[in-house]
Design a protein around this nucleic acid. Structure first.
Lengths: 189, 189
DNA sequence: CTGTCTGTACAGAAAAAACTGTACGATGTT
DNA sequence: AACATCGTACAGTTTTTTCTGTACAGACAG
């Protein structure tokens, strides 16, 4: 895990267990971020490291292949959960967790949601236009009119939702969310 | 997909393509909700159904086994994305999508986040207490003190984040989020 | 330039997830 | 009562994902 070699065996055990509980807890819940258990554990490991870590150190600590560590840590970097760190004349790449979990949260969900939002919104608008055009080109066909009306109503409701989601994502991107729901509560007095 | 049988072939095609685009778009982005492509498609299919659907109808429309439809629709029901519908003397179970996507969104993420929150928070608090007790029982051991201090600082920061997340989830659960970020913008004037 | 070390591409093995067909319990019908 | 019909449990198969070992390109040291 990390240093602490100069402590008596018994104390090391306690520290190790305390850390392990958290690492596994974090790792387990990483599926929220679409991350599997192994990479979740890797993240947990990095969390308790008080200094940047190399791929070889991860390999040893996780008892997994270097290839897995390489791909795993890259996933975490892509998600901005881990940062690549530069150190003077260092041969190896160094990584450490992004400790600002508020930012991690905002980055992750704004990224994912915005991607889905754009794809879906685009599909909605295009299909809606096609259906309206179809109805316009065939006036008076009752069956068609009913059908288009029903579908377009659904699309409009979906678009309304996506427009809300867009504004919501914006609060994450701009940090306005932390005005709406403050990071800290004012002290009780 | 659904009725429209009385329309000319050509018009049916257009409607079908317009719907298909959306269904696939939705299905693809369902991985945000931890749902795979097939079940995503199922959801999209239900979205355009203007009446509740039976398992057998899904089986036919999706060209998949009834077992898959059964488990798939159950997943969607568990996530509150689809509702089981009761109809007078109906032999078969009927399902329809929950059309309130605002609610779907709020339900899904509050459910998932709260679960993770509670597990992680519990682990954090327990481990923190153990480390503090360890330090208390061994005063003056410099190495231990440094280590405990560093770990506890991290845990405190994490707990601070989780307390924020808790308040944030609460806005989803209570609907207060829709006061903070309104469903609709006031009309331009 | 040669030799060494690092990260990753790639192909194959192992593990996990998705999907299916069969069988069966529960419920309703005759 | 016997007979149908429905939904799902379960076991086995297929597909996908994860993980590993090997090999190699790029950077650097001597």
């Amino acid at each position: 895990m990390e240093q602490a070699k100069e402590l008596p065996r018994e104390q090391q055990e306690i520290v190790h267990r305390a850390r392990k509980r958290i690492i596994e807890s974090i790792g387990q819940n990483m599926d929220l971020y679409g991350i599997n258990l192994s990479i979740g554990h890797l993240y947990g490991l990095l969390f308790f490291q008080n200094k940047p870590m190399t791929l070889d150190e991860m390999t040893e600590a996780m008892r997994m292949s270097k290839t897995s560590m390489s791909t795993g840590v890259r996933t975490l970097v892509d998600l901005k959960m881990v940062n690549k760190v530069w150190e003077k004349g260092a041969r190896k790449d160094l990584y450490e967790v992004e400790m600002d979990w508020f930012q991690t949260f905002a980055d992750f969900f704004s990224l994912k949601w915005r991607k889905a939002l754009e794809i879906n919104m685009h599909a909605m608008r295009k299909s809606k236009a096609e259906l309206l055009e179809l109805a316009r080109a065939n006036p008076g066909v009752e069956e068609l009119e009913r059908l288009v009306e029903a579908d377009v109503a659904k699309m409009n409701e979906a678009i309304r939702y996506y427009m809300w989601l867009d504004r919501f994502i914006e609060t994450l991107e701009t940090g306005a969310i932390f005005d709406l729901v403050p990071r800290d509560l004012p002290e009780e007095s």
